[in-house]
Structure formats: C-alpha cells, structure tokens
Amino acid sequence: MSSSTTGRRRRAVPLLALLAAGTLTLGAAPAADTDPVPSQGPAAAAPDASAPEADAQGGAPRKISPYTGLMAEQGPVLAVKFDNARGARPHHNLDKADIVYVEKVEGGMSRLMGVYSSKIPRAVGPVRSARESDVELLKQFGRPALAYSGVRSSLHKFLKDSPIYVRSHGALPRAYYRAPGRNAPHNLFVNPGMVLKSAPRAHKPKDIGFRFGPAPKGGTRTAERTVRYASASHTFRWSPSQKRWYVRFDGAPAWQSNGKQMSARTIVIQKVKMPPSKYRDVNGAVTPYIKTVGEGWATVLRDGKAYKSWWMRPNTKSGTKFIQKGGKPMPFAKGQVWIVYEDA
C-alpha cells in the first residue's frame, strides 16, 4: 500500500486538538476522494462539548428497535431537519440517526431529516427549516419532537397546530447555537437533549412498517444508483468489501465532521408524487409537497442488489409497508435506513 493511500485512510485527528494547534479551518473540504471504502475527510464543525454523547435518554430498557432492527435503548423520538446545501457540509452526527430521509425542496435542492431514538448525540447540524409535508411524514411516528431553524410566518401556525412537538430555533433559542468557522445560515446547531427535555411526552418508537432480515432471493446486482433533483444529486455506491452503500452528494463524497463518509446498509428509493404546496419560500419559489400517504413503486438497495418493491401507507397515522414481489414484506438489512424520495 502506498504512503499516499495510507494517508487518505488515516483516522481524523480530534477536532479540539486541531483547533488548538490552529491547523484546522472549520468546514474545509476533504483533500481526497477515496470512496467506496470508508473515506477520511477533515474533522469540522463540532460543536458543543457541554454534555456527553449517550444512548437514549433516561436509561430506557434495551430492545429491538423498529427503526433499525438492532438491539438498542428506546428513548423518545426526535426528528431534526438538516441543511444539505454545499456550504452546510460536512454534517455533524447525522450518522447517529436511526433513519435518514432525503427530501426535495424549492429550486430542486434537497434537505435531510434525521430521526433519532436509539442514540441522542450532544449536538447535530447544521439545522434548517421545516416544510408542510414534514407533518404528514412524521405522524407515523406518533407524537415526536421536531427540531428546525424556522419557517415562513404563514406556515408557523400550521406546524404549531399539528400533533408534533415543534421546537424551532425561535421558540427554544437556548437549545441552539452558532458554530464558529461556518458561514450563516449553514452554522446553526442544536442540542437534542435540550429539545427532548422541553418535550417530555414525546412518543417512544413504535412499529412504522419496517421489517428486517436476510436478503430475499432475486434482485438485480447494482453497483451504483443515483437520484437526481433539478439542483441536487444523491448517489449510492456499493462497497463489496465494506458491505455498505457509500453516499455522494452532487458528485462528491458525503463527508461527516468525524472525517468519515456517510454510508448505510439499506437505501430505499421511494417514488412519490410531489405537487406544489400552497406555501412558498422567502424568494417566492413554490415548495413541493411530498405525498407520503398512498402507494407506489420503490427500489430497495441492500447487499449489492436492487429489489423492486411496492410501498403502501393508507393514512397519516399508519406506518409505511414495503412489499416484495409475491406479497411478502421486503426485509431491510439491520442498521441505519435511508429513505430517498424520488418523483413518481
């Protein structure tokens, strides 16, 4: 192995040490592209060290998570809206989420939503605004808490009147802070523990339709799959050696602040209708409404194969089932699950 390859795979130096030495510029881009093996980018944007990272709040009993299929503590559910503009990367602690949703927003850009329960990091971000269709999506989790940066005034009442415990930057400012070294608006981070403390009745995990188990027969061998919006692309590359799908945004590795590239064992590409919402952004652009109630085609990527599936969600309170050919549930590989919405 060459010395250059070894250097690219080295472990990221702890953030605080780099800051103290003055050798790290927060938010800097990685120097090398080494995917599909785990890539080591720079440590960046870390944020608040006031509380230790921990598993779910309150020492909850350990049992199998309905979100990941893994044994984990089951704390209250928190959803966090993540910025995914180029200036917002790398993301911090998105890898700790049980589920990651990829959503289309105005201008064909994308936003991410991380759903947390098994592990509650001390900080996540950068955080951005919520959308109308987030309420429809999140109702299948019961009454979770939602952390986000804010919304247009016309949408504020709609979110406030929803059954979700909405905890925006404006409503709970002490839970949010601006990370140094990042440019606004891509520098807002949140302390999930403080958000959940303000929503003590947030629901714990329940069955939302996911099933986990060995890969079924069939499927089509797939090395790479890309979902494109007008102004964003999301690519998932299979690594046979690591047995994971490595994520790329807009043609570049999707770095995390710990220097690793984002990856998951299961990627679900769910085809949904996205008609215009009645709401617009600050520039007047129409917001897409992602219809997560209904049914349609989906492609489940796992174990280096693509499985054509059918998704069904009859109403907002029900979970989303994924069915393989023959009518049996489509099993996911255990671990973090990505749901990527694609225009039907």
Rank of each mutant, 00 (worst) to 15 (best):
T220I: 15
L16K: 10
A49C: 06
M274W: 09
G69R: 03
D250R: 06
G294C: 06
D33L: 10
D95Q: 12
N84M: 07
R280S: 00
G142M: 05
A130D: 01
Y246Q: 12
F236Y: 09
L172H: 09
S149I: 12
V13E: 02
M109R: 12
G75M: 04
Y229A: 03
G181H: 04
V337T: 14
D35M: 14
G170D: 11
P47Y: 12
G114T: 05
Q40S: 15
S263A: 15
K328L: 09
M1G: 13
A49F: 15
R313A: 09
Q57I: 15
P173C: 03
S110Y: 10
E132S: 12
P126Q: 00
P163H: 05
A45V: 13
P42G: 13
S118T: 12
H92N: 11
A344S: 10
P288Q: 09
A54M: 10
R8H: 11
V77R: 01
S50V: 06
G251H: 01
D134P: 05
P216F: 10
K63H: 13
F332H: 11
R302A: 07
Q324Y: 06
K271P: 00
Q324H: 09
S50Q: 05
Y289T: 13
S277P: 05
L159P: 02
Y176H: 10
P240G: 02
H234R: 10
V195A: 05
N283T: 13
Y279G: 02
A49R: 08
K217E: 14
